[in-house]
């Protein structure tokens, strides 16, 4: 990996550059991993099966809500992927969603905030809360899961205080641009889904082709070795949590947009586990050092397909969690088998 990030000193001859480019191709893993191919196959198979079982599945009225519903979880999952690659975890994102959503909803109801103001407000607040996590974890040098359990409680407290014991009612349709209605689509594709894809592509490129991205993998692989190799570990770790905060803030806007005109205090509940599930199904190793954003987006799509599919088949909606649990076990089991095979060869 170092050979791809370090440029040789002095003016390298043209031949040398071709050599490093070739080397880079060999050092980086193939753009799509086995887990992701398997995920694509499973998703396609599920879609075919659902289309055969309920003809209503492959219609616009069913696919568009599916994409709108998966966007927030996928967006948070992108940030969570970056965090888990560094060997950390963030269980406080549900609290961040709650705080951002209630602040934005109140801003729109009370002072009629416009779309850009609402999004900017949400993203900034999310980033600030992520900064709290990042500073405590990177500079307090405490295990991420403990700190984020603590801040999850604090964020939830903050959110409940802002809600003040009631719901926020009569939310205007300012965020319809990201909703599931006609205003939220271009050429039939929901905007929230498009934005999520753009951010995922940017994150994919950053993680794979920039020194900063490779540093994150190095930290997850061995933080001490990374520090000795000159990586600014604390700063990078902190920025991973800030990034997740920013993305979670944006996701909170999507959550308001896909909901009704009433925001209840249980907004965001369970999203931390849903995002972690998407990341893990996507093949990112919970031990750090390995993973990809593409897998996370596919994982979120799989989770949402299962959730929508179970409802459309007329089964009890809670059954979907059973399938999600089984999918997590299968996905991680397949990953374990591949690792074992790699070690023996």
């Amino acid at each position: 990996m170092s050979s791809s990030t370090l440029t040789p000193p002095g003016g390298a001859p043209a031949g040398q550059q071709a050599h490093t480019a070739k080397e880079r191709g060999r050092v980086l893993p193939f753009p799509i991993t086995g887990q992701e191919i398997v995920l694509i196959v499973v998703i396609v198979a599920l879609w075919v099966a659902l289309a055969l079982a309920t003809p209503a599945f492959l219609t616009e009225g069913s696919i568009v809500p599916l994409f709108v519903a998966m966007a927030p979880v996928a967006l948070i999952g992108i940030g969570m992927t970056v965090i888990i690659i560094t060997g950390g975890i963030d269980v406080s994102v549900a609290g961040i969603v709650m705080v951002c959503a209630v602040v934005v909803a109140k801003a729109m109801v009370d002072s009629g905030a416009s779309l850009p103001v609402a999004v900017a407000l949400s993203v900034v607040i999310g980033g600030l809360l992520g900064l709290v996590n990042g500073v405590l974890i990177a500079y307090g040098r405490v295990h991420a899961i403990i700190i984020t359990f603590g801040t999850a409680n604090l964020f939830k407290f903050l959110g409940l205080q802002l809600f003040g014991g009631t719901t926020v009612d009569n939310i205007p349709g300012t965020l319809a641009f990201f909703g599931r209605g006609e205003a939220g689509r271009t050429l039939g594709v929901p905007h929230s889904f498009l934005v999520m894809l753009l951010i995922a592509a940017a994150a994919w490129y950053y993680l794979r082709h920039t020194p900063g991205g490779r540093h994150l993998y190095a930290i997850g692989g061995d933080a001490d070795a990374a520090r000795l190799a000159g990586v600014k570990v604390q700063r990078r770790v902190m920025s991973a949590y800030v990034l997740t905060g920013l993305l979670t803030g944006l996701a909170a806007c999507f959550v308001i947009a896909r909901g009704t005109s009433t925001l209840a205090p249980n907004v965001g509940a369970g999203m931390e586990l849903a995002a972690i599930a998407a990341v893990v199904i996507g093949g990112t190793s919970i031990m750090g050092g390995r993973g990809s954003v593409l897998g996370t987006v596919l994982g979120a799509l799989l989770v949402q397909t299962v959730t929508s599919g179970v409802t459309q088949l007329g089964w009890r909606s809670q059954l979907s969690s059973l399938f999600i649990g089984i999918f997590i076990l299968i996905a991680v089991g397949a990953d374990l088998l591949r690792q074992r095979a790699r070690r023996t060869t």
Partner: peptide
């Protein structure tokens, strides 16, 4: 089997809580 504990128990959390709700029709 060697599963990471966090993920295993996340998966069984989903599975057990789902069965608990479905088993007696909520």
């Amino acid at each position: 089997i060697g599963y990471p504990a966090l993920i295993t128990t996340l998966a069984t959390y989903y599975a057990f809580s789902s069965i608990a709700i479905v088993i007696n029709d909520q």
